[in-house]
Design a protein around this nucleic acid. Structure first.
Lengths: 200, 200, 200, 200
DNA sequence: TCTTAATCGAGACGGTACGTCTAGTCTTCTG
DNA sequence: CAGAAGACTAGACGTACCGTCTCGATTAAGA
């Protein structure tokens, strides 16, 4: 595998970049990730194929950047609810997350990205840094608040806790190993809180 | 998508079938799943392409069957250790699972399968039934034994418990979102046992 | 340069072959040789690109074969006039040849072929064998008849004679180094006959 | 086809011009004309592509100018031998010409030019004027001398004679329609002299 | 035992997309 | 402010595979 070497970006055409990211998002929504081709993106964006190959090492990175760009525009409002009741808040968040996962418009591209991530460590790194890390940080912030409020054990490992909340959910969704029901979300939250609650 | 209709298997050539499954496994190990093509499998197996298309609906199913075939041959010995100490046993199992995940010979094909599963519900179902279910059942058997021994709460949800053990581990591995260290395994087991232990 | 290895032609699809040769001729007539692409030929012929690459080593050979095919269909009538007067016959033939050279429908593809021949010895060989040799043989047959009739010296080198008739004409045409006038043709014939006539 | 309009040459950078012509000659010698690209010339010459497009209408003209430039530097010594024996002199010249044609360093670029000339009338004109005409004139000068010496018929058409000497030779070479042997050269000269000799 | 019909290896077929290459134009920065 | 540097749109290149489709040549079943 040849390492991708991005050229000097000073001369980069920002209009083309935006057109490519937009076309990518549109195409994924229209025909599904697996059928999105570099040629189609270039054609839709009114751009030469070389312009894509010049700046991105693979389709996965184009897709990733197209989502990062989308998220960055709506940034700021990303924060979990904090009613003071950690259990209620977590259950709500988990249910909302599950619903998001069930939305085709959301599901398709994320599944797509995960497909690529599995076999591309470089893309995985970029994904974790650009998309997963911010999401996790939001969760950890809420947990930190709860711990401060005495609703969690003072020595609760919040990183592990976040992973225990998201991991089982994610697995069921990605591998379709089980249904995403509210009961599942509630049971998961309750179990995690038993593990990290103040009594533990 | 046209439904795959397997023809009458009475006339099926078992030698060809075995050659295909073996070639598939070899090729995945040699060049990685993404670069394995139907043509390469056919060529390696000394088989016409049509013979593959006749009996399997997609590459994913060939891969899946090649692993199922492998596992079925070594069946029987699959059982978790039971020293009477559930915490020690689980920690051991989790560490061993992690090591397995780190073995290239094991990692490559499982990643391969997961790639296909993500975008193919039918394959996901077959995967969960043929490969995941047996593994989970082994885990649940050990947990049932522990509950019977009073090391777990009488009303512990063993299905959920198994998912909480495997989910975070699986997520870290598949998405490379964190390192697979013994400390992580231990922390995970301890937290899950706090959630489902006799006091809870 | 990789040697072109035509596969076993037993399975060859004759319909596709004809469609390709026809499409090639049409495209050359429509847009000119330089702008004819393999992709366009394939598309026009309703054929996969690989089918062209499988059977021909380069665009030049496709073009060559398309003309050979054309000529072979009208075969049989190819013979020079023989009125008994070699000078008159040659002058007529040379003038007709010049007119042919001036016909766009004829000129374009032959120029095209010559372009390729210059830099491709293999194509040159095929061209000389398939297109040039038959034409030359027809000329030599007429000269042989004239020699037999005593209108040429008994030891006249007919091969050289043919080359001296066609060479200057060809050069003027290909390199546009001079006009193709009847006077030029007549002068050329007269000079060649002085060189190879019975008195010489 | 857009007419090429050379800009005001007052500001033209002579160093760049020379670098381009030199790079062109070197590249033709190294990789062959067909594989020479404008980009490669610009890169080798340390020049922007635009500088080439600004001053030359096509690759052919760059090649042509690169040879004209070369020839102009060694000009003056161009004259045919004149021993008084036209047959011996012509045979010598023809043999030398053939040898030149067989020299790769000479052959490659001339073939290259001819490739372009075939399909580009404007270039053909420039070629005939700049390269062919001087060569022909040298030949005609020698023939004029022979006619004056009574070795040729007083009314011999020297232009036609020159074409009859070069034409067959050129055709054999360009189309590889036959071997370039001394016997061929001698036979050609003898035949032409029979046609244009004093007796005729 | 002899059809006879499905399966087999083989590989040509019409296609799609790949990633690279070059053309010719346009833009930016530097000497 | 001309020129080097090089990014841009466009599109052909030749390759790799896809999944379908013949081709005989087995081969196993039932007549």
């Amino acid at each position: 595998m040849k390492a991708h070497k991005a050229p000097n970006s000073a001369r980069r055409n920002e209009q083309s970049r935006q057109a490519i990211l937009t076309a990518t998002r549109e195409l994924i929504a229209e025909v599904g990730y697996a059928k999105v081709t570099i040629e189609a993106i270039a054609s839709r964006a009114g751009v030469g194929k070389q312009t894509i190959y010049r700046w991105w090492p693979s389709k996965g990175f184009v897709v990733l950047e197209s989502f990062v760009a989308l998220i960055e525009t709506e940034e700021g409002a990303v924060e979990l609810p904090d009613t003071g009741d950690i259990e209620a808040d977590l259950k709500l968040v988990m249910r909302e997350t599950m619903e998001e996962f069930a939305t085709p418009a959301f599901e398709a591209p994320i599944r797509a990205l995960n497909t690529e991530i599995i076999n591309d460590p470089a893309l995985a790194e970029a994904y974790n840094e650009k998309l997963a890390a911010p999401t996790d940080e939001v969760m950890r912030a809420r947990l930190r608040s709860a711990r401060h409020a005495g609703q969690l054990s003072p020595d609760a490992d919040l990183d592990l806790m976040a992973e225990m909340l998201y991991g089982p959910l994610y697995q069921r969704w990605l591998l379709r190993s089980g249904p995403l029901t509210p009961e599942f979300a509630d049971g998961l939250v309750e179990a995690v809180l038993r593990a990290f609650g103040p009594r533990a």
